[in-house]
Simulated scan of single mutants.
Amino acid sequence: MNGGDVSIDYTGAHGGQMAMAFAAGCVACTAFWGLIGKYMWSILGKAKDDRIAELEGTIEADRAQCAAMETRLVQRIQQLEGFVLAMSSGDLRQQVQRAISEDRVIANGGET
């Protein structure tokens, strides 16, 4: 038997043993990469969870800031409406009051 004359009979007497050796190698490789994946996911998962918590905190802060700004804007609109009503007279005052009333009804979900 020379070094160049080596032939392997996969369907012969030792074919099943070779298949089992191949399967064992596949299982070992899969288990290895599974462990590596579990380790990496534990590291990346923690980083992901920390980032999600940070973003949720930012969202809550933004919502609180938006709510405060909305309150200030509503108050400012009411001030400006008062100024417009105080500066208008006669028929113009009635038209302004009607427009303000209609705008408030529409803003509250009703229809005019």
Rank of each mutant, 00 (worst) to 15 (best):
T58E: 13
T112Q: 13
M20K: 10
A31C: 10
A86L: 13
A99V: 08
G3F: 05
R51M: 10
I100V: 15
G109Q: 14
D103R: 09
V27Q: 06
E60C: 04
S88H: 04
L44A: 10
A61M: 03
G37N: 13
E56D: 14
A28T: 07
M18G: 12
F32V: 02
G57T: 08
A21R: 09
H14F: 06
Q75A: 15
W41M: 03
A53V: 04
I106F: 04
E56Q: 12
A61L: 06
I8G: 00
A61R: 15
A107C: 15
D103H: 14
V6A: 06
D91S: 01
D103Y: 10
M87I: 12
L85C: 01
S88P: 05
E70L: 15
Q94H: 12
A99C: 09
I36E: 03
E56M: 08
R98S: 10
D50T: 11
C29I: 05
Q78Y: 11
K48Q: 15
L44S: 13
S42M: 09
G15S: 01
T58N: 07
G4C: 05
M69I: 12
C26Y: 05
Q95P: 02
C26K: 08
T112G: 14
R104T: 00
I77S: 15
R51W: 05
A86F: 04
T112R: 09
G25K: 01
L85H: 01
L55T: 02
D49A: 12
I106E: 03
G3A: 11
A24N: 08
I100G: 07
G25S: 04
M87S: 02
R51G: 02
I59T: 12
G25R: 11
Q78V: 12
N2L: 08
G15L: 02
A99P: 02
I36P: 00
R93L: 01
M40C: 07
G4Y: 07
S88F: 02
S42I: 07
S89E: 14
A24F: 00
E102F: 08
G3V: 00
D9A: 05
A68L: 06
A13S: 13
D62I: 09
